[in-house]
Design a protein around this nucleic acid. Sequence first.
DNA 1: TGCGATTTGTCCGTATGTATT
DNA 2: TAATACATACGGACAAATCGC
Lengths: 223, 223
Amino acid sequence: MEALDLKPISSRTRRSDVADEIRRLIIFGVLKGGQRITEVALAAQLGVSRQPLREAIRELAETGFLISEPYKSLTVRDFTKRDLTELYSLRAALEQLAFKELWPKRTDDDIRDLRCRLDQLNDSVAQGDSAAGIERELHLHTWCFDVADHRMLADAWSRVRPHLHYYYALHQRAHGRSGPLRHAHDEYVAIACGDDLDAMLSSVAVHMQDGIQNVLPLFGDEE
Amino acid sequence: MEALDLKPISSRTRRSDVADEIRRLIIFGVLKGGQRITEVALAAQLGVSRQPLREAIRELAETGFLISEPYKSLTVRDFTKRDLTELYSLRAALEQLAFKELWPKRTDDDIRDLRCRLDQLNDSVAQGDSAAGIERELHLHTWCFDVADHRMLADAWSRVRPHLHYYYALHQRAHGRSGPLRHAHDEYVAIACGDDLDAMLSSVAVHMQDGIQNVLPLFGDEE
DNA sequence: TGCGATTTGTCCGTATGTATT
DNA sequence: TAATACATACGGACAAATCGC
């Protein structure tokens, strides 16, 4: 009964496939930060024409995965320590807004849904399946945006989420299969099921601080 | 010495011109909400080929001004009362985060810059130039994002800002030349120049509430 | 300074896929 | 089911801008 967040089949089009694929290549480190991309080469490798590729590029440039300098270059975004701290502070603000919005709207079904997502996450972690663990941690954190019933906020999250995915994957590549820590989200979920909104808001802040501490060491000196 | 927020000349390209123009047509009501758009017709009217138009469309769909249903239709976003309240709650969260970030970073130059933006706004209002008033109100509210020195937050604002522009223009069309109220931002700026962050955060919240009350009546029954 | 090489940006004609009638 | 309309995608061409020599 888990609600996987997939794109509807109806919206499957070449440009979206291409965008997803490029995003995947970046997240999993095949395309590396700072690397230059030439359209024609990429189009040939992906086996598509330039038109849908260029549209996909617009999409990825809009969300910050590619840096497009007209007539000059197209490069893969090189994420820095600063980008990471920015991501987490923005993410905290968005997630806190989500909890404020959803707090009076939560139903028992929503609570069950959240616990289900947590169980799935803990299962993946227990099995050492870190790829699934990443997906499910993201899915867990998507819960508040699903329930908040706030489309513009959900859109903002949908642009932030792939960036988080990138850092999770980075962390995984650096530390082997250690994705999220075992039961690291138990308290987060417990408070989310409770009645104390202020406690939840500070739990979000604390959770973000923990997250950033895990990933920060992966960056050395840069800016 | 005012720092106008223009796109650098280097990035001027046909697709960005087209995107700006379509956004403008939507904001000023030439293209109306719900209206269907056909690519070929629009390309002909704008005098460009379909490739840069499609890229511009991706950009506008990504930021919510156009609704693209692959293989089906491309329509102008029909904003509702709900969209407006969502915009204002998200905007408040972003602006509050900006002030938290900038608070320890403010320099005297920044303060002067802010006062300058306020003066320009009040000038426009006094002269009854509502188009300039809208621009300058947006420019005033962009100050906190300029100073916060938080690129991801600034990006989020840059997607929110055109929506706000839309509602301002809607308000102007409905109420004649009455844009922002005279000296409505004086207190906002005064507190922003002061030392009380909490006061600023609640000032942002109050300012948002005032803003939403001005625009809400323009929407009737919808959803 | 200029010139060629490379790449991005743009245009056009055409073909295919999808939804609607 | 066929026909229509339109979005999507392809391929080839050229124009425009940048960079290195």
